[in-house]
Amino acid sequence: MFDELTRTAGPGTPLAAQARGLDMRLMLRAGEEDTLLIIRDGSVTEARRGPHVTPSWDTRLSAAPGDWEAFLAAVPRPGYHDIYALLRNGRMAWEGNLLPMMQHLMYIKRLLASLRPEVA
């Protein structure tokens, strides 16, 4: 579900330029499936699919696969259009050290939104 992030936010992309200096391990959990994003200087250099042995991450965002799919729709419906909306509705959990995410919140939001199909 999240593999494409190495392309949409890989080195040299406009997205990567929005988070210069950010080094972060962001875990994205869809149901029981974990994907660990390695972010270096704002670029997603790896998207490591689990299962992971003794995983280490800064921040983890967890939601059910169906809720991720609703979030990643080209035009998400109300309640699913943003990670704060999902948090508010109890459909997403934010865990770990939130500081790097909060320091780069717009980048993280754009990073995830980069997986949405473009609206024609």
Binding site: P78, I83, Y84, A85, L99, M102, Q103, L105, M106, K109
Partner: peptide
């Protein structure tokens, strides 16, 4: 002190708007 208030508040305001 360790989070840029303008960037943070702007990003949160963005969350509250419709994608359309």
């Amino acid at each position: 002190a360790d989070v840029h208030g303008g960037r943070m508040c702007g990003a949160f305001a963005h969350s509250l708007m419709a994608p359309t």
